[in-house]
Write a protein that binds this DNA or RNA. Sequence first.
DNA 1: TGTGAATGTGAATTCGTATTCACAATAAGC
DNA 2: GCTTATTGTGAATACGAATTCACATTCACA
Lengths: 217, 217
Amino acid sequence: MKRRAQKIKTEIRQEQIARAALVLIARRGLNHLNIGALSREVGVVPSAIYRHYPGKDRVLESVLDLISRSLLTNIEAVCQATPDALERLHLLLMRHVQLVRHHAGIPRVLFSEQIFAGSARRKQRVHQTLQGYLQKIARIIAEGRDQGQIRADIAPDTAAVMFLGLVQPAIILWLMSNGTFDVAGHAERAWCLFREMLETPGGRSRPDARTAKKAKR
Amino acid sequence: MKRRAQKIKTEIRQEQIARAALVLIARRGLNHLNIGALSREVGVVPSAIYRHYPGKDRVLESVLDLISRSLLTNIEAVCQATPDALERLHLLLMRHVQLVRHHAGIPRVLFSEQIFAGSARRKQRVHQTLQGYLQKIARIIAEGRDQGQIRADIAPDTAAVMFLGLVQPAIILWLMSNGTFDVAGHAERAWCLFREMLETPGGRSRPDARTAKKAKR
DNA sequence: TGTGAATGTGAATTCGTATTCACAATAAGC
DNA sequence: GCTTATTGTGAATACGAATTCACATTCACA
């Protein structure tokens, strides 16, 4: 019955392990992530994990890398998709929701106690990841302001944090309601209000995003 | 040196233990909360905890009670302080920030993995607490709408979740930055924008909250 | 095809922590 | 003051989970 697992090169296994960890975290949370379950998910025996990682901590680091990359990938994607700041934000919001819905492990890691209370180094690391994300959002907003599309009396930093706030409580509600809460719906409604708030009062009150190009100023 | 702890009635000890737990959670997080440290904080020996609680789980329940009551107390306080919906929200926001800054254990518990991933019962309980809080906020908003002070085309539920979002990411940043991030400052700036967004466009663009009574419609 | 390095395995070890229990001290009611 | 229920104490227990290690297998390379 029990077949011995195939030998796989360390780099591949590391990737496998990190992804499996994210899946397990999504399923049962970071606290329940243990080497036993992780190895089972990968299809090896617990001690095998230590062939590829010096310890559980380093596994977590890899998971954080995975998450960091996902977030930054989203930023880059929306920046390539359109030059319009408001459209970028809207796209980013939807992609963020999709990402989180698909990988529920991400918010679970970011909000986890193990991060807040864990080693100062890990905490620092997550903090920098979040700060980087926020800065990139703030930059998009600043560009929109320079284009006259976004009110100049709004501090991009503040707006960026608010932007995160459009979905963060919703995600928590979603996690706590066993996936019942309609994150995407809330995000869409909240976005409409947020956009109105951002837009320069000079423009139309409800310009269609599709027609609102940089031309108007 | 080591004095035997004084005998104290169970109800009092229970309160002590719950408060001590919240303090410890604020200091080191929910994951690091163990019976040993908890008993030390209270000034007794680990096994003594079991004279007052059947187990660690029940201690957590008490902590949740403490938190629930704090949140609801804030709601009641602001409702008594003023009949003006926008003022209520502003007050609530500031009180919320103060509460969290004073008892950092509160967000640590609410965002904790142990809640999301813990027993379904606890999760359910926290969910209901949050839902109750949200509903009360939504009611304040709905009243403001009925008074013509708040735009009628905004769903109170959505606005309530957004209201939470004004501070939630800020609180997380605050926790991760070791108390460096200026939560109160962000809350104030975010509130100004949020208020503008809520207000009926018919009114002045920046009516002083003190003069904006229900009379105007 | 043979050989060594890389990877997988199962048992053993260690550690932290929740919980239990028999016993001691204390407070409250008579 | 005496008795008894209540509360505190220290040792013992139990359990889960991380990690280590000696040994087995397999892959890559010559």
